[in-house]
């Protein structure tokens, strides 16, 4: 592999853009196909399939064998609320290779001391989220328990193509949330995207256990969806 090609591949990843490295196995000849160029590539159909599934694989054309190295952007978890659960969640998420960003307008909560290793934005979600950008490789988790902070974030998430939305709160809290969001124009189908109460039901009690159940639910959404489309 040419170093420049490897470097381009790494650059696409850093910019959160999908790309496929195509290797002709016999000759070792290679090309990088960026997301926007897929349609015009001779292997367009194979590239589209493998990108949708997020899976690297072999392909054949005109008697030649190609290996497609599929690179999708790293999965990111945007957490609304610099709370106790988030403090437990941030290092766990890093341990399973998820990028984490914490957003909380309350400056007493959103401090680098409380979150030493992850980006912390002491801003309102409506201000911060457009810059952060919510793409199909993003999970949005609302943990403040405060509608005036959580709701704007959930609205932004519902308008996006993010693969997971979760919100902390009991069934009753969620019912009231659903009513508020419906009054803002969202449909029942929209709101069905929100996982609430948040997290897999493992009987979690402590903040760390709740963080674990949330991350497990995020992984389940990520992998199951890909499995279904495969």
């Amino acid at each position: 592999m040419r170093l420049s090609l490897l470097s381009d591949l790494n650059e696409e990843r850093a910019a959160r853009r999908a790309a496929v490295l195509v290797t002709e196995v016999g000759s070792g000849e290679q090309r990088l196909v960026r997301e926007g160029q897929v349609g015009s590539d001779p292997l367009a159909k194979d590239l589209e399939d493998s990108l949708r599934q997020g899976k690297s694989r072999l392909a054949e054309q005109d008697g030649l064998q190609f290996f497609l190295t599929v690179q999708t952007p790293p999965v990111r978890v945007v957490v609304i609320g610099a709370v106790h659960i988030s403090q437990a969640l941030a290092p766990m998420a890093k341990g399973i290779d998820l990028d984490v960003t914490i957003i909380d307008p309350r400056t007493a909560f959103a401090t680098p001391e409380r979150f030493p290793d992850v980006p912390v934005l002491a801003e309102w979600p409506d201000t911060a989220l457009p810059d952060v950008g919510i793409d199909p490789y993003t999970a949005v988790v609302a943990l403040t328990h405060d509608p005036k902070i959580d709701d704007p974030a959930l609205m932004a998430a519902l308008r996006s193509k993010c693969f997971y939305i979760g919100a902390l709160g009991s069934r009753k809290t969620h019912e009231r949330r659903v009513q508020r969001l419906m009054a803002s124009g969202f449909t029942e189908a929209d709101l069905a995207r929100i996982h609430a109460p948040i997290g897999l039901d493992i009987g979690a009690v402590s903040p760390a256990e709740i963080a674990l159940s949330i991350l497990a639910e995020i992984i389940a959404s990520l992998r199951n969806e890909r499995r279904r489309s495969a």
Binding site: L3, L6, S7, L9, N10, R13, Q71, P74, K94, G95, D97
Partner: peptide, 14 residues
């Protein structure tokens, strides 16, 4: 933590 495939490719480049 260098356990994702692309972090590995980043290391290859470096």
């Amino acid at each position: 933590m260098r356990s994702t495939d692309t972090d590995i490719l980043k290391a290859a480049e470096a």
